[in-house]
Design a protein around this nucleic acid. Sequence first.
DNA 1: TAATGAACTTAGAAGTTCATTA
DNA 2: TAATGAACTTCTAAGTTCATTA
Length: 754
Amino acid sequence: MSGDHSHNDSQIDSGSRINDTHKHKDKYKDKEHKHKDHKKDKEREKSKYGNSDHKDFSEKKHREKEKERVKHKDGSTDRHKDKHKDKDKRKEENIKPKKEKENGFASPPRIKCEPDNDDFYHSPKSLKRERDDDEAEVKPKKIKTENDRVDKKGKKRKPGDEDIKPKKTQKNKKGDVTEGKKKAKKEPEEKWKWWEEERYTDGSKWRFLEHKGPVMAAPYEPLPSNVRFSYDGKSMKLSLGAEEVATFFAKMLDHEYTTKEIFQKNFFNDWRKEMTSEERAKITDLKKCNFNEMAEYFKAQSEARKAMTKEDKLKIKAENERLLQEYGFCIMDNHKERIANFRIEPPGLFRGRGDHPKMGMLKRRIRPEDIIINCSKDSKHPKPPPGTKWKEVRHDNKVTWLVSWTENIQGSIKYIMLNPSSRIKGEKDWQKYETARNLKKCVERLRHQYREDWKSKEMKIRQRAVALYFIDKLALRAGNEKEEGESADTVGCCSLRVEHINLHAEKDGQEFVVEFDFLGKDSIRYYNKVPVEKRVFKNLQLFMENKQPEDDLFDRLNTSILNKHLQELMDGLTAKVFRTYNASITLQQQLKELTNPDENLPAKILSYNRANRAVAILCNHQRAAPKTFEKSMQNLQAKIDAKKDQLAEAKRDLKGAKADLKVRRDEKSKKALESKKKAVERVEEQLMKLEVQATDREENKQIALGTSKLNYLDPRISVAWCKKWGIPIEKIYNKTQREKFAWAIDMADEDFEF
DNA sequence: TAATGAACTTAGAAGTTCATTA
DNA sequence: TAATGAACTTCTAAGTTCATTA
């Protein structure tokens, strides 16, 4: 993938969250950055020169090839290239694309005869859930932990849906539970297949909801008196409130955060607010504060925790489990469901990402009086801790959250919601992929449209069209406007500024190259050089005319305009659907391309990871290279070397055995030969496995696969692939992932097509 | 129509657990 | 059996989108 989307040198840089264009803003930051950059450079050098010797050349070649496959020299992906090529040709020949009719852009053909249920599966907008309303009016006495309702309703997914097959659900004994929790806890009862049931059509999210409320943060435990804080060389006893905030800082002392000026400033500011007036009068300079004893104390504590006896550790584990059982589940519409985050966020210092102007501010302790509870009127309401009250108890079944509170840093609302394995999250997830599949049906029409719009007389439309092209081709995020000074300066497509792109009429032998360099979500750098079509290039020049670097590139556009437009083109279409669509379609294509039927299991899994990786690169999902990367790589290489020696030896043995047989020609030496042969094969396979592992790890150094796997890739593609090649699903998804994607694992068969 | 608020998804880092190896 | 490192889980920040309000 050449210079574009990926790990060329400049891309490696991109792991650093530094935006060069912002250097001038803050001297301090600048220093920080340089330091970081320097470290990165060093690392890069190391990996370039130090660490590569273990890799043989052909492997590297292979990786390069892989990159090539994913992206072309010109930065376009295969899919785009081909499709655009097709389009161009068609245009020239003035022929209507064959596909158009087949896909029925305006309104996709029905696959099934019953319109109602057809819609149910294919048009997320009209997803239905015709539950018996009476069922939920009353507080359920019985919590279904199984799929018994399916039978009752007798109505499930329609056969005839191309990719979704009805499962025979064998009726199971009801998981009758009076108290809900207890029973469900023990039997690993059959999983509820919510995907075989219908959805609510009235916008409500549930009929019945009962839970125990959140787990509050543990109260502050004062420091023992021998652990002291000192100011200006003199130890001093802090008031409880001030001490608590001081411990937050002390706990972070060896984190880079505490070296940053803004962090220090914000912390000190907020800390002083918690001090008594005497303390405030005395403590006026952070530099004079000594937190070391505190920091040591916490370090010792964490050591002690590690060194605890097995027994004590088990005790803690049991207590956690108890909490989980008590607070970690709720009852929603007859089913016991896992809650994702049932703990209230503890107080601490705010850790923003990138250059966040509010880093270091005090995240205050949340009290019951701050908390809104959401549950059914007729449920057993959660009790606030003794002597306290909730802010409010409401019964809003149009939302999915159980608990909410307003956080003090940005003033935004935080929620407690259900686990990804829950019905309510799963349905939404499934629906997301169905929308993306709908986009697949009309994406060619949309691409044609925005290409036409590049020529529009209206600036607004041109901008919209160019932005959409970027979102489609590069999988950029929509890019909402942000309030300045409230968070790190990051952008997405619509909020790109002139300073974020560079135009090159010619670069590295390519025409019309756009060079992107900006900080995206989480202040992750996006760096990419992309050849674009001439018309796009010319438009960009136009958009940039008479503008300052800090001006908006698309000054006539924002996400709301863009999304309104998209909504008109396809029901349910928004900018982010393109990311989902392009990610999933890329996975599917890459899997097709990379999977070699003759290869063994580890090789196939490597192919899967490579396909996954292609998507992660497309979506710019990066991670900091693990601190231990070099070392672990070396260790692995040592293992490989040892294995090679072992193989050589095994081969020698084999040779010897052959010679033996020639001389002796007896049964015994024949047998010996066989076993030596087997030994060689075994070692060869082991070696291969190790080598594959090394390749995989190396290629993954700075790329995070998890995000795309969890959020962008239609799990049915992976499930189908596993089924097709006989790969155990466990090789691809761990337990949590299997729970989240249970619906896909159950419904997709090997010929599922995204 | 822009600003604000609310709800929900997506994100990487940090923390914890588990498996492997010396 | 401890140390190590990878895998997995948790945490919560940072996005997108849609609804509401001014």
